[in-house]
Structures are given as structure tokens and as C-alpha cells.
């Protein structure tokens, strides 16, 4: 993979270090890469083995822990701090499929779509509009809309499930083809997911405040 091939020399012994965390010759810790996949020694794929990632995370956490470098050179002490920080960020991003896809898209330079109207389908818009109207009544004290809000929440959860299934199959297609148009489709689905996710969170907040109100007013 060209991804791994750039030559970098070990800061300690001068042998080629090949972007691995440790020098193969003198075993000293190298300046850590900021590329999350490379950091974990993984190919940049959208579908990854979660169990393997977790295993690598615990291994690396041990290997890179600053306590292990207390008696080493200041350079390695510094690298271990940097590496530990990158490790935690990289793990948080890579283990979450949505964050991972956002990361791959950002690396590939695929930006979020313009917030231009009509990128959303009319059926979803109409649903969101009705939902907002129901929420307005709900905030105004009309409790009778609560079942409708709960149903809406269920529908949006189901939609999020469909989106996630769609993402899953697009991830596979991208890993096989590396086609830019697949990335564009992923971008669209991620934007839609963000929208649906916002609605779910909004509903959760509103429904939660209402039940606390009811609990305290009794």
C-alpha cells in the first residue's frame, strides 16, 4: 500500500522507520502519526473489525503508556504523551461507524452538502413540519399530542435504523470499489442521519421535560 510506503528515518538509530510506532531496529518509540488508521496499523477501510480494534486499543494503551517511559529519553517521553492522546482520539473516532465515515470523508475532501433547500425529500419535510406543529402545541400545554410525539419518535428511530443499514452496505461498496460517487452517497446519507438524529434528540428532550413536570406537580 502506498499509504505505508513513505520513508521516514528513526530519530534514534537512523534506520527506516516506515511509519510504525516503534523502530524495528532499536525498538525506540517514534513520532506518532496523526493518521488514525495508520496509527492502528489498519488499512483505511469503512468497515472494520470492532473486536480487533478494541484489542489493538488495549495493547497500544499498555505499550504507549507514559509510565513506561519515565526512565527513557525526553524525546520518547514526549512521543508517548502525544501517542496516548492520538490513540484515544483515534479509538473514539474509529470505533463509531458514523464518526469513522465522517473522518474518511474529511480525509477524502468530501464536504457536507450546501444547506440548499430541497436536498431533503418532501415527505420528510412535511413530517418534520407536522412534528414541529405538534411540539408547539405540546409546549403550550396540550398533553393530548403526547402519543403522536411518541409515535413520531418511533418512526424517526426506525428511519435512523434504515439509514444505518444503508450506510453499512455503502461502506462495503466503498471498501471494494473506492469509488468517489459512493463517498458522495455516504455524504448524503450522513447528512440525512444528522437531521433525523437532531429530531430524535429534540423529541427526547421535550418528552423528558414533560414527564419531570408531571412528576413534580403531583
Amino acid at each position: 500500500m502506498s499509504h505505508f510506503r513513505q520513508t521516514v528515518e528513526c530519530w534514534q538509530c537512523g534506520h527506516p522507520a516506515e511509519h510504525s510506532l516503534f523502530c524495528r531496529y532499536c525498538d525506540s518509540l517514534q513520532r506518532p502519526t496523526a493518521d488514525y488508521f495508520r496509527f492502528f496499523g489498519l488499512e483505511p477501510r469503512l468497515k472494520i473489525d470492532a473486536a480487533n480494534l478494541e484489542k489493538r486499543f488495549y495493547e497500544l494503551s499498555r505499550l504507549l503508556h507514559p509510565d513506561r517511559y519515565l526512565r527513557k529519553s525526553p524525546t520518547e517521553q514526549q512521543y508517548s504523551l502525544e501517542a496516548t492522546a492520538i490513540l484515544n482520539d483515534a479509538y473514539r473516532v474509529l470505533r463509531n461507524p458514523v464518526a469513522r465515515a465522517e473522518y474518511v470523508l474529511r480525509q477524502a475532501g468530501v464536504e457536507s452538502l450546501e444547506p440548499r433547500a430541497r436536498t431533503l425529500d418532501p415527505a420528510l419535510l412535511a413530517e418534520v413540519f407536522e412534528l414541529n406543529e405538534a411540539l408547539e402545541e405540546f409546549r403550550g400545554g396540550d398533553r393530548s399530542v403526547r402519543p403522536a410525539l411518541e409515535q413520531a419518535r418511533e418512526r424517526f428511530l426506525a428511519q435512523r435504523g434504515e439509514i444505518d443499514a444503508g450506510l453499512e452496505s455503502l461502506f462495503e461498496r466503498y471498501d471494494e470499489s473506492r469509488a468517489p460517487n459512493v463517498l458522495a452517497e455516504i455524504r448524503k446519507l450522513l447528512d440525512r442521519r444528522k437531521y433525523v438524529q437532531n429530531l430524535i434528540e429534540q423529541l427526547d428532550r421535550e418528552l423528558a421535560t414533560e414527564s419531570t413536570d408531571a412528576a413534580t406537580s403531583d
Partner: peptide, 13 residues
């Protein structure tokens, strides 16, 4: 006319 912005969640009729 019903339009909306996916990013900010605004909907306008």
C-alpha cells in the same frame, strides 16, 4: 412551498 435545511433543521412553509 415547503422547504428545509438539513443542517440546521429549519423548516419553512
Amino acid at each position: 412551498g415547503m422547504v428545509g435545511a438539513p443542517e440546521c433543521g429549519d423548516v419553512m412553509k
